[in-house]
């Protein structure tokens, strides 16, 4: 199976003289096509930095990052923007929907930016809207819909352009448990049926239990890795909790 993310000795150092903070300390990471990978760790472990580097929003101090066969290290701003548009999809904790656009317009935004023709664009929107069950709210504005609907809209926007990699930052962080479950089920289906590659950062062991593989990082280093394998989600959930306890992120970080 194809390798989507190949990161080698990824390092990120913040600050200058005398006041240096190492957010990522030579992390290696490989994600294959169709994988649903979770990244966990206590606050300040470097999860968000890792995600930002993969999202090409932040640049690593050293190391190499290859996404879908292209190294993103030496790209110019213009190229990076095009790269994000064509290869990446994003889901954020606070949805990041544009409040001036309708749900439909929000979803089709990446396609419009890619200048796709209208017929194909409408077809794609209809498919993803169906997948996330938001067909009935397409003409509404973000302030008129619930948090769960907003996050499903954001997810629809993330996958509509069929990106190589979908990055999610605490996607269930602001959702109630019912909405969270709906979203996670959808993401799992996406990776299993459509071979979508998803990488999510989360604090929530419940959310992590939907992943096929969970990476734990601490102090910028890879701590351990759990693979779901053949076991049930319940068993996997308990394993995740065990590792979190060992990681010692504090009780507040575990749900």
């Amino acid at each position: 199976m194809k390798t989507i993310v190949e990161a080698k000795r990824m390092k990120k150092i913040y600050g200058g003289k005398g006041n240096v903070f190492t957010a990522l300390d030579e992390i290696d990471l490989t994600v294959r096509e169709g994988e649903f990978v979770g990244i966990m760790g206590p606050s300040g472990a470097g999860k968000s930095t890792l995600l930002n580097v993969l999202a090409t929003i932040d640049t690593p101090t050293s190391g190499d990052v290859v996404i879908d066969g292209t190294s993103i290290i030496n790209m110019k701003e213009e190229q990076l923007s095009a790269f994000r548009r064509d290869k990446l999809g994003f889901i954020f904790q606070d949805y990041n929907l544009l409040d001036t656009l309708t749900v439909k317009e929000n979803i089709l935004l990446p396609l419009a930016l890619a200048k796709m023709n209208v017929a194909e664009l409408e077809r794609r929107v209809a498919i993803v809207a169906d997948k996330f069950a938001i067909g009935s709210i397409l003409e509404k504005y973000p302030y008129q819909i619930s948090g769960g609907q907003k996050q499903r809209t954001a997810a629809a926007r993330a996958i509509v352009a069929k990106p190589s990699l979908i990055l999610a930052d605490e996607p269930t962080g602001a959702l109630d448990s019912k909405s969270a479950t709906d979203l996670l089920e959808s993401l799992k289906d996406l990776s299993e049926q459509d071979q979508a590659t998803i990488l999510t950062v989360t604090h929530d062991a419940f959310a992590a239990s939907y992943c096929g593989r969970v990476l734990f990082i601490k102090d910028g280093k890879l701590f351990t890795e759990l693979v779901k394998g053949k076991g049930t989600r319940k068993e996997f959930f308990n394993k995740v909790l065990d590792v979190l306890a060992a990681l010692g992120g504090g009780a507040s970080d575990v749900i």
């Binding site: 213009e78 923007s81 994000r84 548009r85």
Partner: peptide, 12 residues
Amino acid sequence: RYQILRKIGVSK
């Protein structure tokens, strides 16, 4: 709003 757009892949 523009920050969101930048993340989605709109260039400067």
